[in-house]
Simulated scan of single mutants.
Amino acid sequence: MILYVKYCGGCNPKFERSLLVARITSELPEVKLMYTQDSGADAAVIICGCGSACADRTGAIGTYGTFVIWQNEQVSELFDFLKQVIIIVNKSEETL
């Protein structure tokens, strides 16, 4: 699965954004990260450093959805989303 990752500007970080990305790659090795806007992403995650979640969402679109996260309480929901996208992508690859 290809995941487009977009960060906010980091002006008021209360959430450790880079640790989240490290956890994603560690726990979900089938996820490949992409940091440039491209229509080839299966999913997108916009990682914001605080609750204002003001990151520009322009172009942050994944084929199967986009998730915006700004706090630790959302991590399990993000992982549920990513696991669902992995299942969808794997099923679509099986039919090819």
Rank of each mutant, 00 (worst) to 15 (best):
R17G: 03
E27S: 14
A22F: 08
C54I: 04
I87W: 06
D80I: 13
F15C: 04
S76I: 08
V85R: 00
K14L: 13
T58L: 10
I2T: 14
V85D: 02
L33E: 00
P13F: 05
A60S: 11
N12F: 12
V68R: 10
I69C: 05
C48M: 02
S52I: 15
W70G: 05
A55K: 00
K6A: 06
A53P: 04
L82D: 02
I86L: 10
E16W: 10
G62A: 04
T36P: 00
S52G: 12
G65V: 05
A22M: 12
R57Q: 15
F79H: 08
S76H: 09
M34H: 09
P13E: 10
S18T: 14
N90F: 05
C8T: 02
A60G: 03
I88R: 11
Y4G: 04
N12M: 11
S39I: 13
C54F: 06
I2M: 12
Q71S: 14
F79G: 07
A53F: 04
I47L: 04
Y64N: 05
A55L: 01
D42Q: 07
I24V: 11
V75F: 06
L20D: 07
E93Q: 09
G65L: 05
E94D: 10
S26M: 09
K32W: 02
G9K: 04
E77H: 11
K14R: 13
M34V: 15
N90H: 11
E94F: 08
I87H: 08
L3H: 01
A22R: 14
K6F: 00
T63P: 00
A22H: 11
R23H: 11
G59T: 11
S92R: 14
C11L: 13
I47W: 06
V31R: 03
G40C: 12
F81K: 04
M34S: 14
E94A: 11
G65R: 06
L82G: 03
N90Q: 14
S26A: 14
K32M: 07
E94Y: 08
T95D: 13
T63Y: 08
I69A: 07
T58C: 10
